[in-house]
Simulated assay, not measured.
Amino acid sequence: MKEVLQKKTLFVVIPLLIALLSVFVLSGPASSPDLHGSTLAALEEKQTTVLELSAASAAASAAITLIPGDVATPIADKLADLSSHFLLVLCAVFLEKYLLTITGTVTFSFLIPVSCLLYVLYVLFDWKSLRLLAARLTAFGLLIFLVIPASVYVSDLIEDSY
């Protein structure tokens, strides 16, 4: 009985230490812009590119409308639509920049500690579904934390290749 209690104590203390480490040590640096400096710089570059493309398509649309007659009007309309699509891409880039630091806070201040507490409850009460939920919550937190840097890395690889 004493052995089982010592084993359970270990499986309770370690997740609690991980939760405390996550909140007090990892949360700050994970949400720091310094950690994501290269990713933020790449997003700034993409933001500039999208702004230039949006301005170019709007200017081309305006220039085409100056052609006499209605022959070029559909082309000008398509270029104007393209400009609005570039603005959607620009909004996505802005959202990525903000989420880059926010997801670090959410993951290491909330999701990882909650998953550790769920695992402790699993150890204490032997509810199998809590173990699965804790694992999924941890995986989800790490995925949302890593998805933007990974997507920027892949985007940069594609951009460098072509």
Rank of each mutant, 00 (worst) to 15 (best):
S54R: 08
L87Q: 12
V93K: 06
T49W: 00
L111A: 08
T105C: 08
E44D: 15
F94R: 11
F108W: 12
S84A: 15
G104F: 06
L79W: 02
T101Y: 00
L66D: 06
S83M: 06
L100F: 10
K97M: 15
I75P: 00
C91Y: 07
A58T: 13
A63Y: 06
I102S: 07
S57A: 06
T105I: 06
T105W: 07
V114P: 01
V114E: 07
L40W: 04
V71S: 08
S84K: 12
E96I: 03
P113E: 09
S61C: 10
T103N: 15
A72C: 07
T48F: 02
A59S: 14
A41K: 15
L95H: 02
F108Q: 02
D81N: 15
A72I: 00
S109N: 12
G104D: 14
L40C: 01
K46L: 10
L117S: 13
K78N: 11
I64A: 15
H85W: 13
L99V: 02
F86S: 03
L79M: 13
F94Q: 12
D70K: 08
A58L: 14
E52C: 05
S57W: 00
A63E: 08
V93T: 11
L53G: 13
L90G: 08
L79F: 04
K97V: 02
Y98R: 04
A41D: 15
A62V: 06
S54Y: 04
T73L: 11
K78H: 04
T107F: 00
A60I: 03
Q47P: 00
V114R: 01
S54P: 01
L82K: 05
D77L: 07
S54Q: 13
L79D: 05
L100V: 11
A72M: 09
G104K: 01
